[in-house]
């Protein structure tokens, strides 16, 4: 199994897609944080929390990373050599999910480190040493850890979507519509839905407050478990569908 995970991770590292998506996953949260710091005054704990939880933006891109990594194999036909080396397709699926989780974790971790490295000194220079925002070091660590975990499970969810849908373009479009249109609209119509939506769960994991989201959120840990549950459910569905499939 470890050989398969290593192979899947090598697969990930040897395409430019991974590096570009990781770059965006890091650059976008950093950009948002820098713009926020430069244009507004951070005065409250809520401001600080919402500022730092921008690390969670990385999760959207690691989700796409998973989708592209799984569906891309069908797009380019590399799935053939994948299944020739490892005919047990379920094992491949699990290895792929874990490799992408590692990739997502990596991107999320870099995003968190860079954002914190910029935001904390910047806030201090504005006279907001971390303590004065009443965000404890523990709070900050929880926001960072939650965001990194989110980036990792989102990649697993993406692998599930990509493996089930196989069409790369369709899978990316569907996931983007789901997260950026269906989730917010549905949450706006029925607030109860918000905390179960991919968007709501991601926001909660990366430390956003309910006020920030505009609807009630679960605690970060609970949200993480629910998100992981979705991811596992999707991988399980793929584990049923993929072995039945004729390749080529």
């Amino acid at each position: 199994m470890s050989a398969l995970i290593a192979a899947e991770f090598l697969k990930l590292r040897t395409t430019r897609t991974f590096w570009w998506l990781s770059l965006v996953a890091v650059a976008l949260p950093v950009l948002v944080v820098v713009i926020t710091l430069a244009t507004s005054n951070t005065v409250s704990q809520d401001d600080g929390r919402s500022l730092l939880s921008n690390i969670g933006i990385a999760g959207l891109f690691t989700l796409i990373l998973g989708v592209v990594g799984a569906a891309g194999e069908y797009r380019h036909g590399t799935i053939t050599s994948t299944f020739l080396v490892a005919p047990d397709r379920r094992r491949v699926l699990v290895a792929k999910a874990l490799a992408h989780a590692i990739g997502g974790l990596f991107a999320g971790l870099v995003a968190a480190v860079v954002v914190l490295a910029i935001a904390i000194p910047w806030l201090s220079s504005q006279g907001h040493a971390v303590g004065t925002l009443s965000l404890s070091t523990g709070d900050i660590a929880a926001i960072a850890a939650g965001s990194v975990a989110y980036a990792a499970v989102a990649a697993i969810l993406g692998v599930g979507f990509g493996s089930l849908l196989t069409s790369q373009v369709a899978a990316v479009v569907i996931v983007l519509i789901l997260v950026s249109v269906v989730d917010p609209v549905a949450a706006g119509l029925a607030h109860q839905y918000g905390k179960f939506s991919l968007q709501g769960l991601g926001m909660a994991m990366s430390g956003n407050s309910s006020e920030n989201a505009g609807y009630e959120l679960f605690a970060p840990g609970v949200s993480g478990l629910i998100y992981l549950g979705y991811s596992i459910a999707l991988i399980a569905a793929a584990a049923v569908a993929v072995p039945r499939r004729d390749i080529g």
């Binding site: 050989a3 040897t14 380019h76 080396v85």
Partner: peptide, 27 residues
């Protein structure tokens, strides 16, 4: 060992990396 078609390659991946992946998976 098998050769199925000429399309099963990722255009952005180097030839050697394609083989490294298979080698890694096969130990």
């Amino acid at each position: 060992g098998s050769v199925l078609d000429t399309s099963g390659l990722h255009p952005g991946r180097r030839g050697r990396d394609h083989l490294r992946i298979i080698a890694r998976a096969a130990g």
